[in-house]
Amino acid sequence: MIKNSTPMVKITNVHKVFGGTLHVLCGIDLEVNKGETVVILGASGSGKSTLLRCINFLEEPTAGTIEVDGIAINAGENDKTRENHILDIRKKTGMCFQSFNLFPHMTVLENIIEGPVTVLGQKKKKAIVYAEELLDWVGLMEKRDEHPSRLSGGQQQRVAIARSLAMKPKVMLFDEPTSALDPELVGEVVDVMERLAKEGMTIIAVTHEMHFARDVADRVLIMDGGNWIEEGTPEKIFNNPEHKRTRQFLAHIL
């Protein structure tokens, strides 16, 4: 396991309450080190996606602190720098969604250079060079000028990963990236995620893809009812789960 002294992502006592009554996250703590791959498991509705979306503030945490690569934001504070800090955190985190969310009015290449050009203000030429490298890396060079609607789900998700990587993020968040895919297309996406992990990317993934959790993750966390009930190495979680709920959950999905 690769360990580094300062955590890349540090979540402290995060709560999320929806609509004043629905307590989805109940005081979550999490530290993820640089280069670490963490997989979050849990039944649907347990709050995994919400936690992931709190990290880049697509969801505003109701309480607690989120820190990414040294930028910390408190849920309560509301000063002028807050908006900029949120944008900074988003620039440092890439996110892949269950439904890909590629921009349908742009070609594959345009999708990938959109972030660097619009957000980072890069020159188009420079952005294209790196975008082509990424396209090559995810194996979709020949789809460069296609629109997303012409691509299969697996291809779309790989483009979405390339789009996130174009921002040179420090952390990648995967929110059930293979759940919307036909079974035969899951492999190509997991393969890309695995290579990303091997190249030292810090990854937090919510996924039901057991191969990824078992063989690629450094650490697996089980969430239930808005908090962790168990965490450990994949070997420990899969072979020797302590908690009854963990055993129940694993029995369901394995």
Binding site: N56, L58, T93, F97, S99, N101, L102, E114, M167
Partner: peptide, 17 residues
């Protein structure tokens, strides 16, 4: 769809962008 806004925001775009 809201997913489009989320994808744009996740890239770090401002509301105007």
């Amino acid at each position: 769809k809201i997913g489009q806004t989320e994808a744009a925001k996740a890239l770090g775009m401002t509301s105007t962008q």
